[in-house]
Simulated assay, not measured.
Amino acid sequence: MRKALVSALSASVISLGLIGVTATPALAANAVACNQDGFMRIYNSDAVHCFANAGYLDVYITNVNFVFAGNNRVMVRYNDRGGWGSVTLDRWESQGFWDHSVTVEDITIY
């Protein structure tokens, strides 16, 4: 009887422990259709590229001349004629690259 009670209590403790340890969702920014004003936008010579959701995303977008944060705080890392640069924009801010375009290589949406 005692052995059965110990086994039952052990199983209960283990199952409670498993319930208490849950995985947290991974943050992942992703490309989306440009159908809302609040999305982050990257403009290049070919198109407008939109992104949403908090997280980090590797991209390779050439000939970028304008970045708009939308309803997000964002950080954009870019290659500027062989040198690296980055810009952090608060909500509704933008950054233009008017004298020459850059290549955006990663973005973080906070």
Rank of each mutant, 00 (worst) to 15 (best):
D46W: 12
N79A: 10
H49R: 05
L5N: 05
A69Q: 04
G96L: 07
V6F: 05
Y56E: 10
I42C: 01
V64P: 04
G55I: 09
A54S: 12
W92F: 12
S10Y: 01
N30Q: 15
T24P: 08
N53M: 06
I14S: 08
N65I: 08
L16V: 07
G82T: 12
F97L: 15
N72G: 06
H100A: 06
V102W: 05
A29S: 10
V74Y: 01
V102G: 01
S94T: 03
D58T: 05
D37L: 11
A8F: 13
I42L: 06
T103K: 08
Y43E: 09
V59T: 06
W98F: 14
T108Q: 12
N79Q: 04
S15C: 13
L57R: 03
Y60D: 15
S94D: 07
A23P: 04
G82N: 05
T22H: 05
N63L: 09
D58M: 11
P25L: 06
D106S: 08
F39M: 03
S10M: 00
V21W: 10
A23F: 12
S101N: 15
S45L: 09
L18C: 00
I14V: 15
V6I: 08
N71C: 10
I19L: 15
A26V: 15
N63S: 12
H100W: 12
I42Q: 02
T24R: 03
R73A: 12
F51E: 11
V74D: 05
M40D: 10
Y78V: 00
N30L: 02
N72A: 04
E93Q: 13
P25G: 06
N71Q: 09
S12D: 08
S101G: 14
Y110Q: 15
I14A: 13
A4F: 13
Y78D: 03
